[in-house]
Design a protein around this nucleic acid. Structure first.
Lengths: 231, 231
DNA sequence: GTCGGTAACTTATCTACGGTAAGTTACCGG
DNA sequence: CCGGTAACTTACCGTAGATAAGTTACCGAC
């Protein structure tokens, strides 16, 4: 009675011969699930993941070199979900600019609804800097975002021969809103969706307006604003 | 010879009777220094901090309840440095808008030069949510930023009765650039200062331009841009 | 059928961490 | 000079990530 229950009840049946990948998928799923209820990546231990799957901790290391590798796998998974959410949000929009904003809204919404997943994917120092570049740039979410920026250029919204640069700018704005809302949720941002929309809209409109001015000196901007307001 | 060297050589002299605060300051300084060379907060252990100061680990707990409390003290210290850097950068600027951008540039520059400090201060889930609100809002850096936004409203750059909202928006842009540059330094942002400037300028100009439009529907924006470009 | 090879998994253990309880040292006011 | 207490230390606990070495059970070959 006083003996620890160990993990006898959750003991998992040994997998079929060729299906070692099955356990890998279960581990990623378990880690992702655990992360949804954790406040930090430190809160989820390899032991906890192992127990959730019904396996002993060392078994995880047969599929992942270390904890970082497991978390990286979760990140890839999370990026996929984010992409789906963004695509779904942009479907209804007809204009490229509208789609861009819908993407941004969905991006921030996803971050708020999955704070720990977003934190891991976008706010932690990247786990493996080797292929990380390709992973981010080739991630569907980023690619779709960039494609829509290109559409905006084609539609005359933006004037630039560097769509990637614009994408990074807009991403910075979206990430800034998301990161702030996730890291400091107690600050008086007001309605989060309205705040997000203001930030995103300012970023897009600001970039477009910048191309209307000869330069971006404070005096030039102030003068331009005065002229605009008076007319 | 084979015995571990323990920490005999770095043994610290016992402090004077009334000066317990001295050790506290040394601990914070050591933690801040260690963090400069660490890749994550997990890389700096209480043991390492203790050894750097020349003290045994439990002594730290006489001044800080736990590791989070120590890190919180470091955060406060870091915010102070950030404020100094921002003020210095804004001194030369005469116009409020120029000062605002100088602040933003200095903010991002500080984040890039002190990535781990910035990460701890702005990207980690806040350590103590109780007084954290006041700490951030009353932090000098934030206060100065907000004051300059108010100046911009007075100068007619922005039109709003909610300066705090504008401050949050601009902060989101600056934080987005900083966080992205810190978390994903390998991405092809190009020149970091130029990138930062574009993001900041777009945020400020975008907010100002938004007040020129009747609404922010995609069609309205596209139409306005067409008119502007043709004139 | 059975039997060796090996994939799949476990037991046992290492080192390091954050944190605590209980003890010890040395300063200092009376 | 002596007792009180601030300022520390020694010893320890539980848990974490990770590894080495062992064990089990599937499965193809003969």
């Amino acid at each position: 009675m006083a003996t620890t229950p160990t993990r006898q009840p959750a003991r998992r049946r040994r997998a079929q011969r060729g299906s070692g990948e099955q356990l890998r998928a279960e581990i990623v799923a378990a880690a992702k699930e655990l992360m949804a209820h954790a406040r930090s990546v430190d809160d989820i231990s390899m032991r906890a993941v192992a127990e959730a799957v019904g396996v002993t901790p060392p078994s995880i290391y047969l599929h992942f070199a270390d904890k970082d590798a497991l978390l990286a796998a979760v990140v890839i998974d999370v990026f996929g979900e984010l992409d789906k959410a963004m695509l779904a949000a942009g479907e209804a929009e007809s204009s490229p600019l509208g789609r861009l904003r819908a993407y941004g809204r969905a991006y921030v919404k996803f971050a708020i609804e999955h704070p720990e997943h977003y934190r891991l994917a976008a706010m932690e120092p990247c786990v493996e800097p080797r292929n990380a570049l390709d992973e981010v740039l080739n991630s569907s979410a980023f690619a779709h975002f960039n494609a829509t920026v290109i559409e905006c250029i084609a539609a005359g919204i933006f004037v630039s021969d560097d769509p990637l640069g614009i994408t990074f700018e807009l991403w910075a704005a979206a990430h800034g809103a998301a990161a702030l809302l996730v890291a400091k949720p107690y600050l008086p941002f007001g309605d989060t969706e309205a705040f997000t929309d203001r930030v995103l809209c300012a970023a897009a409109l600001g970039h477009a307006a910048a191309s209307l001015l000869p330069d971006l000196e404070p005096e030039t901007i102030a003068g331009w604003l005065t002229v605009q307001r008076s007319s």
